[in-house]
Design a protein around this nucleic acid. Sequence first.
DNA 1: AATCTTATCACGCTATAAGGGTGATTTGCT
DNA 2: AGCAAATCACCCTTATAGCGTGATAAGATT
Lengths: 211, 211
Amino acid sequence: MINNDNKIQVTIIEDDKTIREGFTYLINASPKFNVVSSYSNVEEALGKLQANAPQVILLDIELPGISGVDAIPKIKSLLPKTHILMLTVYDNEELVFKSLSNGASGYLTKNSNTEKITDAIQEVIDGGAPMSMNIAKIVIKSFHKNRNSPLTKRETEILEQVAEGKSRSKIAKDLFVDLETVKSHIKNIYSKLNVHSREDAIRQAKDNKYI
Amino acid sequence: MINNDNKIQVTIIEDDKTIREGFTYLINASPKFNVVSSYSNVEEALGKLQANAPQVILLDIELPGISGVDAIPKIKSLLPKTHILMLTVYDNEELVFKSLSNGASGYLTKNSNTEKITDAIQEVIDGGAPMSMNIAKIVIKSFHKNRNSPLTKRETEILEQVAEGKSRSKIAKDLFVDLETVKSHIKNIYSKLNVHSREDAIRQAKDNKYI
DNA sequence: AATCTTATCACGCTATAAGGGTGATTTGCT
DNA sequence: AGCAAATCACCCTTATAGCGTGATAAGATT
């Protein structure tokens, strides 16, 4: 019997049998990794995961029943130290960000070759965050602000503070200007963004990445 | 004379002469890239950049005078299509996120070898977002929510809406509950977070990644 | 020189929103 | 049976939000 004790233990949760078995084969072919278990759905996995206690879980982002995205917090509460790598076919922005805020550590595309798969697993083990070029691009782009904002520097500054939940008078204090000045700026902001409330101003500004 | 016309044009802005010249040498050694210009400071670069119009700029994140971070929007307004790769020595979280929101496309550590440098340049040209393992980790971690939030699901939901600038009555409408219910939840949230205002609640929650 | 933009401040007005106190009910989970 | 979570009720006071209208000074732009 081969000794798997000092290998990195991996679990796969993926409903497509071909991919599940393909990945298992490719990963087991590496001397450093061992697939301890694989499941076709989250429900079954949750019941049995603690017995395996893998260091890394490859989790399909879209699964019937409990989705991969929703499975992340459930898995994390059972195995807090386990790294979760999402398996994706195409890049769905919304699912990517939901997975991230739920606690995923990285992404692996389903058409990856052996090297990419093992590299990614090794990278999460080393504390990294492996992802495809496309995912990295989406993530980085989410930080970029719009350089064509209609708002002036001061207006942007004030709207950012509005979005932090500050009252107009608190903003005035913090910026060392009069309350009337802040009111005036906010009036101009509303007019430029064509809105009539804090809520709408914040939404507009965030949607357009003005703030 | 060597024909550089169909090579990818690169500019370097970096105050350390050794690194500037080292990178220039390494990049020029590749048949695909050509360093058209290099500057030791942003001020000089801004005046001359448009004459070169490089596709990629390697920009030191920390520079005397105008910093690399602050240079990004200025460069982008001169050359909107140019990709900016930040040069870093160590990973300063704040500078990383500021660079990103200002429009940087990726990161390159100063101790990179030729392959990493040319790979990164090629990757931004291809629309990607190259970065070191550490930077990727920092970026991904910034999305992760705290799984030990003292707030219940409903409380988290409501606080998220408060952070969107919604009034209590708007939240009540959107959640199909009574205003009194929302007030009650917010009271509980304030009590759990030990705060007495929207502003403080939002700050607390964001700092601890409860929302 | 004339104009525009930006940031600043003033005053008046009305509705409501925010924060706090205290307490009750119901549902679901353990 | 007990507890946490979510719901709703009624009381209270002060501050806030949003709107209208207008002024002023400094800087940039044309």
